[in-house]
């Protein structure tokens, strides 16, 4: 995959922001408006079905990747809400999908990254094999870095067998121990649960439960994602239930709670509840002017040093991630 145009675009700009499909553009603080927009290349570079790995340009829409993998009976559970989202965008935002309960977080899917740094150099981190501890874990560092450490240009991802059956059901309560749901969503009243696997196992787990087309998540002009320790979901839910105009749905066993509302104050109140239960509320949509994170990031000084190590000139996505200290512009040659 030819990365030269991207390298040149990055090297020649003063500040840069990598853009995908802008489906999660609200994540993080707004980027300085004068940053030059760059896009990573799209396309599947290599799919090794027998090795269950796939290498793609970071600009590849998830839907395109999914079609290629589906043809080989495989999948890569990036699970963005919108299939137009690019692979690079999903990884940079770092927010895992609904099936995290069974399939794990996004960061565990990335095997190798190729990243364009500020001076146009391409840096490789990780490796193409499914197991690898050679050197420091740059792939994980880039997941959730919001484009502030360089431009993700190409990634190698781990695939898995696509389940023969994948079924969402409505249930009166969470599934009992001994079942293996891929997702359990709970909004205080009803439960939506996803079972996957071979037909007999899915049938057995779904017995007596009405099937639904797919999960319904709260809708509203302003949306956020709460992240709390999984054990704090139920006490948090009690607080959220008391908030007028707030709709929510929790991923049980994970600790993610999706919230939506039509008035910003309810989102602010939800954020306070999240803080009270040891977590965060990340703005995902709307809520103009509301800070993205709501409180200072932990270990901001150490994160600042990491940022400076990869982006000494403060070139990438300026403003996106509020870290302590000023960018050490020109500090390193």
């Amino acid at each position: 995959m030819d990365l030269t145009p991207l390298q040149e675009a990055v090297a020649s700009a003063r500040t840069v922001v990598a853009v995908g499909a802008r489906t999660q553009w609200r994540i993080g603080e707004p980027v300085a408006p004068d940053a030059a927009v760059v896009r990573a290349p799209a396309g599947v570079v290599r799919h090794e079905p027998a090795d269950m790995t796939v290498t793609v340009g970071a600009g590849t829409p998830f839907g395109d990747l999914d079609r290629v993998l589906a043809a080989a009976g495989q999948e890569c559970p990036l699970d963005p809400a919108d299939p137009r989202a690019t692979v690079g965008g999903v990884l940079a935002a770092g927010l895992s999908g609904l099936r995290r309960l069974r399939l794990g977080p996004l960061r565990d899917l990335v095997l190798e990254v190729r990243v364009v740094l500020g001076d146009g150099r391409v840096v490789k981190g990780g490796g193409p094999t499914v197991k690898n501890v050679t050197g420091y874990d740059l792939p994980r560092l880039y997941v959730g870095s919001l484009g502030t450490l360089g431009v993700l240009a190409q990634v190698t991802l781990r695939c898995r067998p696509r389940p023969t059956v994948s079924r969402w059901c409505r249930a009166p309560e969470p599934p009992p121990a001994g079942t293996r749901p891929s997702a359990v969503l709970w909004d205080g009243e009803r439960v939506q649960v996803c079972f996957e696997g071979v037909r007999a196992d899915v049938d057995a787990q779904c017995r007596g439960l009405p099937e639904i087309d797919g999960p319904v998540l709260p809708a509203g002009a302003h949306r956020g994602r709460i992240s709390v320790p999984p054990g704090a979901v139920r006490p948090l839910a009690a607080s959220l239930a008391a908030l007028r105009g707030l709709r929510w749905c929790a991923q049980l066993g994970v600790g993610t709670v999706h919230v939506a509302t039509d008035d910003v104050p309810a989102l602010v109140a939800a954020r306070e509840a999240a803080h009270a239960h040891g977590g965060w509320l990340l703005c995902e949509q709307g809520a103009p002017g509301l800070p993205a994170f709501g409180r200072p990031l932990p270990n901001a000084a150490l994160m600042r040093r990491v940022k400076d190590a990869f982006d000494p000139d403060g070139k990438f996505a300026p403003g996106r991630l509020p870290l302590a200290g000023a960018p050490a512009a020109g500090a390193r040659a």
Partner: peptide, 13 residues
Amino acid sequence: LAPDEPGYDLRGC
């Protein structure tokens, strides 16, 4: 313990 701690994955590093 929260699933999505904001900022860089220092734990992963």
